[in-house]
């Protein structure tokens, strides 16, 4: 309550603080860098419209994660609907698009880091969301359950299966894992 009364949010500062998080979350959920940039912009603008409803820095973080995930899921759904109506395979489209994207920030990137968005895009959405919240945002399974409004047992299952599946995909794609180094 005290924090609520004394908390005077500065929108510019919040954008500076959270833009990377929102962008990374959107990119790893959609697998599309360009789309992630659009989504990040929309989410941050929505933050400006709703800032008066948010009572603390933690609340802002929670809100941003939730809204980014929802917007990403909506965007993926629209893509699937569009692809279905056109008769194309959206996952093939995603992979092709990702191959065309110029790699950047290559310094100090592990082989896994370079391809992480591509690998995540091959997972079911629910597992992807759980893994991103766990390993990007460092949330506990309990916090993930609250963010996703999903039972804890389901979250743990998504994390376990998602991790194993991602490991398998990585071994199929990256030399580092094929060699077992």
């Amino acid at each position: 309550m005290r924090e609520q009364l004394s908390w005077q949010p500065d929108f510019e500062q919040l954008v500076e603080e959270h833009q990377s998080m929102v962008f990374s979350l959107a990119w790893r959920m959609t697998g599309d860098r360009g789309l992630a940039e659009e989504l990040a912009q929309d989410v941050l603008l929505e933050l400006d419209r709703n800032l008066h409803k948010l009572g603390s820095a933690d609340h802002v973080r929670f809100w941003l994660r939730q809204v980014t995930l929802h917007r990403s899921a909506d965007a993926l759904r629209r893509k699937r609907t569009k692809a279905a109506s056109l008769g194309t395979d959206v996952w093939v489209e995603l992979e092709e698009r990702h191959v065309l994207v110029e790699p950047f920030e290559m310094e100090d990137e592990s082989p896994l880091g370079v391809r992480i968005e591509e690998l995540l895009a091959t997972l079911p959405e629910s597992q992807r969301a759980a893994l991103v919240l766990r390993y990007q945002e460092d949330l506990t399974p309990e916090e993930i359950a609250v963010t996703l409004k999903t039972p804890l047992a389901t979250v743990k299952s998504h994390l376990q299966r998602g991790l194993k599946l991602l490991r398998v995909k990585a071994s199929q794609t990256l030399k580092e894992y094929v060699r077992g180094t």
Partner: peptide, 15 residues
């Protein structure tokens, strides 16, 4: 995975 999933820098000009 934790290392690989560090935040990506936001695109230039987004802010």
């Amino acid at each position: 995975l934790k290392f690989a999933m560090q935040h990506r820098a936001a695109p230039l000009g987004l802010k």
